[in-house]
């Protein structure tokens, strides 16, 4: 029961955050990229720590939901979120332990790449140079508070990971 709860908690948290991001909060113009970047950060961290709890189809569906709710072009946010996951999977291939500082470093790279991808996709889509400042501000703020994201995602990590180890051992 606990294993199930822990494995679905990343998904539920992301859906909750997505819903909050689309509520009429009246945020200023420069702050629109913060919440999507927080979601990107959580996808990155969970994909690094417990990839089984966040399959690609779920990340894709989450992105589609974001597109529909924002009335933006369909396929934009799935690409952004999947890029976050792709970097995490790539980093997870390295045979080194991912503590806070390594994860933070990885996230700096992820944030830079995905912000560039986000800006270039939007610019290509509309053939118009999109204002890059809100994106950079959002990415910088989320990079600065990444330890909080790491800690939040880490609180559910230990128990679920140990449960997964037990399950795998049983399977073998």
């Amino acid at each position: 029961m606990d294993v199930k709860r822990k494995s679905i908690s990343p998904g539920l948290s992301l859906i909750g955050l997505l819903a909050i991001g689309h509520l009429p909060l009246g945020l200023p113009e420069w702050a629109f990229f913060i919440l999507p970047m927080v979601i990107g950060g959580l996808i990155y961290t969970w994909s690094l720590k417990q990839p089984e709890s966040l399959p690609s189809w779920f990340v894709f569906t989450l992105g589609l939901l974001a597109d529909v709710l924002s009335s933006g072009p369909i396929g934009y946010w799935p690409l952004f979120y999947l890029a976050c996951q792709a970097v995490a999977f790539w980093l997870a291939n390295n045979p080194v332990a991912f503590g806070l500082f390594r994860s933070w470093g990885g996230f700096l790279m992820t944030a830079s790449l995905t912000t560039l991808l986000s800006w270039s996709t939007a610019t290509l889509y509309y053939l118009h140079s999109i204002d890059w400042q809100p994106m950079v501000i959002g990415a910088a703020i989320v990079c600065a508070v990444y330890p909080v994201i790491f800690w939040l995602s880490g609180s559910s990590q230990e128990s679920s990971s140990s449960a997964l180890v037990k399950n795998t051992v049983q399977e073998l």
Partner: peptide
Amino acid sequence: SEGRGPFIRSVL
């Protein structure tokens, strides 16, 4: 709902 992104300013 508010729709915000790099190129969208809309409301539901």
